[in-house]
Simulated assay, not measured.
Amino acid sequence: MIPTASSAGDCSAVPGAGLGQRLEAALLLVEDNAPLRQMLSWELSDLGYQVSAAGDCAEARHLMQRQPLRCALIDIRLPDGDGRALGAELAARAPGLTIVLMSGAHDLQPDPGLAPHVRAYLKKPVNLHSLHQLFVASGKPARAAFNNGSRVP
């Protein structure tokens, strides 16, 4: 069973305040809504993530090749493809990558076939505390990720 979350929660007026452990990890954010992408980038950066943000699948693929990643937060509905398929592709390229999918479509159901590489499905608005805890709990070291098919030292 893949966890889901639907409540926005209250995470304080200060981004990252009270969320506990900082996670110094490279994170790929794929969100086509530019203002939401910017807001999530700022908030995740405040938590210690090194955020690479993309607005579509093509840009995400390009960013994935540039640096090893530990985490990915991917919108399901993207202008040039499906975030679930992108997640599967990224997981094949980087088996240690912790992937969380998100969607604003409240009627969307998780696909149990994706369970091996998807940590959770979140409904927008994303609860930053829940998201951060998912990544912290993943416990996979950054060196478990792959970049362009070669092992990261």
Score class of each variant (00 low, 15 high):
V51T: 08
P125N: 09
L90W: 05
E89Y: 08
G113S: 14
L47Y: 07
A54G: 09
A105G: 01
M64D: 13
I76W: 03
C57K: 07
G104F: 02
L78D: 10
A88K: 12
R93H: 05
A88V: 02
R93N: 08
L97E: 00
V126P: 01
A94R: 13
D111W: 14
G96R: 06
S103C: 08
P110V: 08
T98E: 03
L108P: 05
G83E: 11
L73E: 01
D56L: 09
V51K: 10
V118F: 00
N127Y: 08
L69G: 01
K123M: 15
R66M: 15
A105K: 03
S103R: 06
A105F: 04
M102T: 12
H62T: 13
G83Y: 07
L90N: 01
Q50M: 02
P116R: 12
G55A: 12
A91P: 05
R84P: 01
L128E: 02
R70E: 03
M64E: 15
G55E: 04
C71R: 05
A92K: 08
A53M: 04
L128Y: 06
G83Q: 06
C71N: 13
R66N: 10
Y49Q: 07
M64N: 12
A85Y: 11
P68I: 07
A91I: 09
D111Y: 12
G104L: 08
N127G: 09
H117Y: 13
V100C: 12
G55F: 03
R93F: 03
R77L: 13
L114S: 09
H106K: 15
C57N: 04
H62P: 00
G55P: 00
P112S: 12
H62G: 04
K123E: 12
R93M: 10
R119C: 12
S103T: 15
I74Y: 00
L101K: 02
V51A: 04
H117T: 03
P110R: 10
R66V: 02
P95R: 14
V100E: 06
D111C: 13
G55S: 06
M102E: 13
M64C: 11
A54L: 11
A72P: 06
P116Q: 09
G87W: 03
D111N: 15
Q50W: 00
P125H: 09
C57P: 02
A94M: 10
A85W: 14
L47M: 15
E89H: 09
G55Y: 00
A85C: 05
P79H: 10
E89F: 03
A58V: 07
V126I: 15
Y121A: 06
A94D: 12
V126D: 04
D75W: 01
H117A: 02
Q109I: 07
H117F: 15
P112R: 04
H106R: 15
P112Q: 13
R84A: 09
L90Y: 00
A92Q: 10
Y49K: 05
A60K: 00
L108K: 11
L78W: 06
R93K: 13
R119A: 10
L78E: 10
V126M: 05
D82Q: 09
A85L: 14
Q67F: 13
L63G: 00
R93W: 04
M102Y: 03
Y121L: 15
P95C: 14
G48P: 11
Q109P: 03
Q67T: 11
G87N: 09
A53H: 05
S103W: 07
G104A: 14
A91D: 08
A53R: 07
R77M: 13
V51M: 09
G96E: 08
L101I: 08
L97N: 01
A91W: 00
